[in-house]
């Protein structure tokens, strides 16, 4: 699924200015509000659905090779977050839906889960 397609499915609004990233391919999705959970199990090239709006979301996304970030429940992040998203070229999208509805919509649109299984002592990252 492309970022542009994702935006239309989630009724999203693109907050970053990455028009050239709209063609980027998203391989699956992942939801979390704790950044360590993201780092622990997200696979590369996923879209991250989260309720957190601070700049660390983008830092985490950059470190974990996240393809795009969707903020749930119409949240609008501080400008620092948007600036960083522009700098790191990570599309930052705000969607009016809650986490559950968002996940459902993307699941129905055949976007798989990109949450890696955590097996103790085995690094999947």
């Amino acid at each position: 699924m492309k970022v542009a397609e994702l935006i239309s499915i989630v009724n999203g609004k693109l907050l970053s200015n990455g028009a050239s990233e709209l063609d980027r391919e998203i391989k699956g999705a992942f939801c979390a509000d704790l950044m360590s959970d993201v780092l622990a199990s997200i696979q590369p090239e996923a879209v991250l659905l989260t309720g957190l709006c601070n700049p660390q979301v983008i830092r985490t996304a950059q470190v974990a090779d996240v393809a795009a970030v969707v903020l749930v429940r119409g949240k609008l992040p501080p400008s620092d977050t948007i600036t960083l998203a522009n700098q790191e070229k990570i599309p930052l999208i705000s969607s009016p839906f809650g986490m559950y509805e968002l996940s459902g919509r993307l699941f129905v649109a055949s976007l798989p889960s990109l949450e890696g299984r955590i097996i103790d002592g085995q690094c999947e990252c």
Partner: peptide, 16 residues
């Protein structure tokens, strides 16, 4: 509330 302190930091490090 900032999204940290899940108690997974050191675990994540050891896995990576």
């Amino acid at each position: 509330e900032l999204g940290f302190g899940a108690g997974m930091g050191l675990v994540n490090i050891s896995r990576c």
